[in-house]
Design a protein around this nucleic acid. Structure first.
Lengths: 350, 350
DNA sequence: CTGTTAGCGCGTTCAA
DNA sequence: TTGAACGCGCTAACAG
């Protein structure tokens, strides 16, 4: 008789098929050393009883849960949503389940969640953009197998968006359009994403002495972008690179409200290619981070680890530049409505 | 010695503390019938060994996993993302984990995933907007405990957004502004969300004989809304209700491009209050579905079930009307640019 | 108050 | 080829 009121166990199947429970186990797991006639009897008995082996019991005996954990800083962030989506579908295709944990942007939570969820899964995919490198290095040791998203650590597989190349692409575009005075609206100061953009800018500036790029501390959302409009206009720059699309859209909206024409007076580029980027007026030039692919590839790496492969080098996915309507040639009235044209003085912030 | 290379077991702790494994179990689980001195010794031994009880083994013996499953049709959909986020955080606050499954909009997958994930969790929160009612009724029987989101079934707790009231609020607003000829851009024909909107419209039309509301089969995304612009304009309606914000934004963009002024020539309302709704030009009037609260409440219901409470009545969360810039009084030139004013003939579709 | 024992449901040796 | 017995790691009865 079934032990629990809800669950039929392997013993019930064994009894109904008139065999021992080990035969049931073997038959149902495709062990070839079983009489085909018995296999059929077992399968029928299992079907009649709607039997399915308990995943928990199997996990205990097999030492694997068919589940991986995904730790993200914020499920409300479209980028992590896309990563989760790509990851979830790829894992499901391999009959794996996904446990999600939202660290609410807290590094402490990230660490704790990674450790906790790891214990009930076969591995963890970690998105920890804010965690200090030393702490990350220490943490991943006890987490293996682990795959990092947009971070790296020794001997740990990672999938990364190549923000730096992407921003360089944007800079190249603006340069080709004749822009020589630009501003960069930066995001969270010490974040990886922001740092890599800054690196791209520094490298670009070094190789293009005729270009002035001013950094304007800004933020990561629409309102931050809108609030930077005055500063952008008065900077005299003819092009603005926003940390992301939200910032770009805020900036776009505010500068247009101030009478500045885009792209005639000011070119604007964003980052991420969020769904609405193509629907602004004019449509936003941006770079698309292949977040869903990032997730799918993160799973591919994790599966490799689970199958015993050696960790490979980090995979860098290069975002694609999407040139739309907010970028144009540096116009005759370059400099915007409220500033004089040409090379404005630049102040550097950190 | 530890059985596996990675895991230290309860036996190791017992040995180190010089007690039996049951004492360790009791001490670590806060069983009061343990000598305080021993508790301290056990805790120290556990700390030194960094011991944590295996969640899988506990799950097997306790019959509960501390995990719930969430099945959604599409992790790419902002509404489900918000639900998941609210749910995840609420569950985490109660030390529960969340297993997510994306059914990729397939009803078959929904059914299969619900059953599969249920076996490795303590219950499932099901978002299955497209599943036929009869199938849903049948499915939930074998899933208990289960909580439904935006669906109902006998004796099953549910949390629902009151689309009907929300749409009625929008209709009331438009009516108060003087609009008497409207169009509704409908979404997926047989979906619950669409049906409830249609019900609201039918009820409103019945109680307001002076109003004509035409249904225009449309779709659920930006492009669908844009593609409906001509039909909306030629309908002669002075106000358009879009199935959701994406549709509204597409419509808004396209009618404006056609020279139609919003809200002077046409009022537009959306649904959902997605993040960008407040940033369109003019800002979109819409109704906000409290998706994150829906998720949090879904967890609250699930927790109730897990604690043995009796299923309560469905919880209806009423979306809030957000009146912004796309709605205005019916103007003197009512009817739009390319149509005559007044009561246009209405064709009804399904 | 503590230790010993019996399962939780399964996969997998070991004999037969 | 099949069945009996063991153990995965833990909690909860049962004795002491």
């Amino acid at each position: 008789m079934p032990r629990g009121p809800k669950g039929v166990t392997i013993n019930d199947v064994a009894a109904r098929a008139g065999v021992s429970l080990s035969t049931v186990s073997r038959a149902l797991n495709g062990n070839p050393t079983v009489d085909p006639a018995l296999v059929a009897r077992v399968q029928q008995a299992a079907a009649e009883l709607e039997y399915t082996a308990s995943p928990v019991a199997r996990s205990l005996v097999l030492g694997r849960t068919q589940t991986v954990a995904v730790v993200v800083p914020d499920l409300g962030n479209p980028t992590f949503q896309a990563i989760l989506r790509g990851l979830s579908r790829a894992a499901a295709a391999d009959d794996y389940h996904v446990l999600v944990a939202d660290s609410a942007e807290s590094v402490d939570e990230e660490r704790a969640l990674a450790a906790t969820t790891r214990r009930r899964t076969d591995g963890v995919i970690l998105c920890a953009p804010r965690m200090p490198q030393a702490e990350l290095d220490r943490l991943v040791g006890g987490l293996r197998p682990v795959v990092l998203v947009n971070r790296s650590s020794d001997d740990v597989p990672a999938v990364r968006a190549d923000y730096r190349s992407a921003l360089t692409d944007e800079l190249d575009l603006l340069y080709a359009l004749g822009h020589r005075s630009m501003v960069f609206l930066s995001g969270v100061a010490r974040s990886v994403a922001n740092t890599s953009r800054l690196e791209a800018i520094a490298a670009f500036a070094a190789s293009h002495p005729d270009v002035a790029i001013e950094e304007l501390p800004c933020g990561v959302d629409f309102d931050a972008g809108a609030a930077s409009a005055d500063a952008v206009i008065s900077s005299g720059a003819t092009a603005a690179l926003a940390f992301n699309d939200l910032v770009a859209m805020g900036l776009l909206s505010a500068v247009q409200a101030a009478g500045c024409r885009v792209p005639d007076d000011l070119s604007v580029v964003g980052f991420d290619d969020i769904p609405f980027a193509r629907y602004t007026s004019p449509p936003l030039t941006t770079a698309t981070v292949p977040a869903a692919q990032l997730g799918a590839q993160a799973w591919a790496r994790m599966r490799g680890l689970l199958e015993g492969e050696a960790p490979r080098d980090p995979l860098w996915l290069r975002p694609e530049l999407v040139a739309r309507g907010t970028t144009g040639p540096r116009g005759p009235a370059a400099g915007g409505v409220a500033a004089d044209s040409g090379d404005a003085e630049t102040n550097e912030f950190d």
